[in-house]
């Protein structure tokens, strides 16, 4: 049993095709990267606050990074971001917005809410792949995060 925990990303994405693209680009990285996918804002909050179907800490471990679309069913991405950043326990978790919208308003609002990074989905595979490579290299190799408290 490896003592090294895999890098856990909570991926919030309502479009299954986009979820597949992200998975394909992040899968198979060294050191192990794990993607937990939820399809709307409500589910993301439930996961993070361990509510409803996500009440079991085993099945919904605390993520190292949140990658989230902005336009989400039920609860909007910005609302999820606001609640995460208001919670002292969740606040340290970096949140990266990955969305189709490059609208200035969205970028401004997201940063106002305390987003860590804002990425716009490219419209070609090559660009998407390059962006996700950079993403992986940055978050998994360059960036340092506080160490996770080990679960009992």
């Amino acid at each position: 049993m490896s003592t090294v925990q895999p890098f856990l990303i909570l991926h919030v994405e309502d479009d299954p095709a986009h979820a597949v693209i992200v998975r394909r680009n992040l899968a198979g990285t060294q050191g192990g990267t794990r993607l937990n996918l939820v399809k709307d804002g409500r589910a993301a909050l439930d996961y993070l606050f361990r509510q409803g179907v996500f009440c079991d800490p085993e099945s919904s471990p605390r993520p190292d990074l949140i990658v989230m679309d902005l336009r989400l069913p039920k609860v909007d991405g910005l609302e999820v971001l606001r609640q995460v950043k208001q919670d002292a326990g969740l606040r340290p978790i970096p949140v990266v917005v990955l969305t189709t919208s490059g609208a200035e308003r969205d970028i401004r609002d997201a940063y106002a809410m305390g987003v860590t990074s804002y990425l716009v989905k490219p419209t070609s595979l090559q660009e998407f792949t390059q962006m996700m490579d950079a993403f992986r290299r940055y978050w998994l190799e360059l960036n340092h995060l506080p160490s996770r408290p080990s679960p009992l």
Partner: peptide, 24 residues
């Protein structure tokens, strides 16, 4: 317009990305 830009772009991203995958 915002919605259009997002919701129309979303399938576009899908189409173009998967066309890339398809090619590969």
């Amino acid at each position: 317009t915002y919605t259009i830009s997002h919701d129309l772009k979303s399938p576009l991203v899908t189409v173009r990305t998967f066309l890339g995958y398809l090619q590969r």
